[in-house]
Each structure stands twice: as C-alpha cells, then as structure tokens.
C-alpha cells in the first residue's frame, strides 16, 4: 500500500530543526521590530541572513534524500 522511499522520511526529520530555528529567528526579528521600529531595516537583513543559513540545513536534508533515493 505505502510506497516511497525512506530517504524522504529523513528529509522530514531534517526539516524539523531548521523549522524551529527559522521560527525563532523571525520571532526575534518581530520582537526587535516591535520594540524598536526604527531598527527594522537593520534587523531585516540580519533576519533574512539567519533565515538563509538555517534553511541550509533543511536543504542538506533534501539533497541527501535525493542522493540516497
């Protein structure tokens, strides 16, 4: 009945960490902006950078899922 590859499950697991991480990053960004709206432009760049770096881990998961498929 169930078809597919266990590597996809690995990707699912690897997405948990970055998901939490990205959530934390944007939570901090929203907090910072709410406290100091004038710092928004500075925080934005940093938040997006952090987002990109955290996302890299999920991308490794995706890549490995395809590699071991």
């Amino acid at each position: 009945m169930l078809e597919g590859n266990i590597a996809i499950l690995g990707y699912g697991l690897s997405a948990i960490g970055p998901g939490i991480g990205i959530g934390l990053i944007f939570a901090a960004y929203i907090n910072g902006t709410a406290r100091q709206p004038e710092a928004r432009s500075v925080l934005q760049g940093i938040a997006i950078l952090g987002f990109a770096l955290a996302e890299a881990l999920a991308i490794f998961g995706l890549v490995l899922a395809f590699v071991f498929m």
């Binding site: 990109a52 996302e55 890299a56 991308i59 490794f60 995706l62 890549v63």
Partner: peptide, 10 residues
C-alpha cells in the same frame, strides 16, 4: 557554493 545553489534550486 552548494548551499547557495541548492537553496535556490530547492
């Protein structure tokens, strides 16, 4: 370079 390209691609 891997993460840079794979992020965009993925």
């Amino acid at each position: 370079p891997l993460t840079l390209s794979l992020r965009l691609f993925a």
